[in-house]
Design a protein around this nucleic acid. Sequence first.
DNA 1: ATGACGATTTACT
DNA 2: GTAAATCGTCATA
Length: 214
Amino acid sequence: MPGGQRKLARRFYSTDAATLAPRLLGCVVVRILPDGTRLAARIVETEAYVGVQDRACHTFASRRTPRVEPMYGPPGTAYIYFTYGMHHLLNVVCGAVDEPVAVLLRAAEPLDGLDQMREHRGPRPVPDHHLARGPGCLAKALALDVSFSGLDLVNDPRLWLQSGRLTATEAAAVVNTPRVGIDSAGSPWTGALLRWAVATSQSVSGPSVRTRSS
DNA sequence: ATGACGATTTACT
DNA sequence: GTAAATCGTCATA
C-alpha cells in the first residue's frame, strides 16, 4: 500500500523550495496527539515560497521578525502562522540556515485518525476526503497552531514527515500552476508556477486542476 | 498608537 | 458570483 515509511531526514529538506515542493507530494504528515493518538495524511498539494526575492513570501526583502524567525532556522523546521484572524497554515522550512524559504502544505488525504481529525474540524459534517483539503483545514485537522511554529520536524515527537511515493498514474497527473491567494503580490510572482498538485486527488483545494484537454 | 491587510473558509445572493 | 468573519502582524507616525 502507498504511504510513508521512514521519517524524512534533515538532508531531504536541504534544497530549494521549488525542488522540495513537488517532492513532498505523496509524503505523509504524521502528528501524535497528547493522548498518543497518531494522525496521518498523505500530501497532495504544495506551494513553494522562494525567499527574499518573492513578493508573496513572508521573508520578502529579508524581513526578519519574531513571527518569521523559524524560516531562518535549519531545514526541517516547521513554520506555522495565523492569518485572517482564524486560520493556521503549516509550512516546512527548507534551503539552508539563514536562507528563509519554505513549502506550504496545502492539502492532504487522510490516512489515520480520521475520527480525531473530524473532531478537530468541528461540528459541521465533512466528507473524509475534505478533512485536510485546504491549508487552513489541514492544520486544523492536525490540531496545529502557532505554538508549534519553530519545532524541529526531524526530532520532535509530535510532528514529522515520512517518505512516500505517488503511483505512476498520480505522478502523471501532477499539475504545476500559479499559487493560490496571492493576487496582490504582483507580476511575476502572482503567475509564477510554484504550486504542485495531484490532479486526480479528491483532496486538492483551490481552483479546478482537472487535466486540461484541448 | 493606529490602521491596513492578509499564503482562507464559509455562507449567502 | 460576492461578502463576512476576525485578529495578529507590520509599517507608519
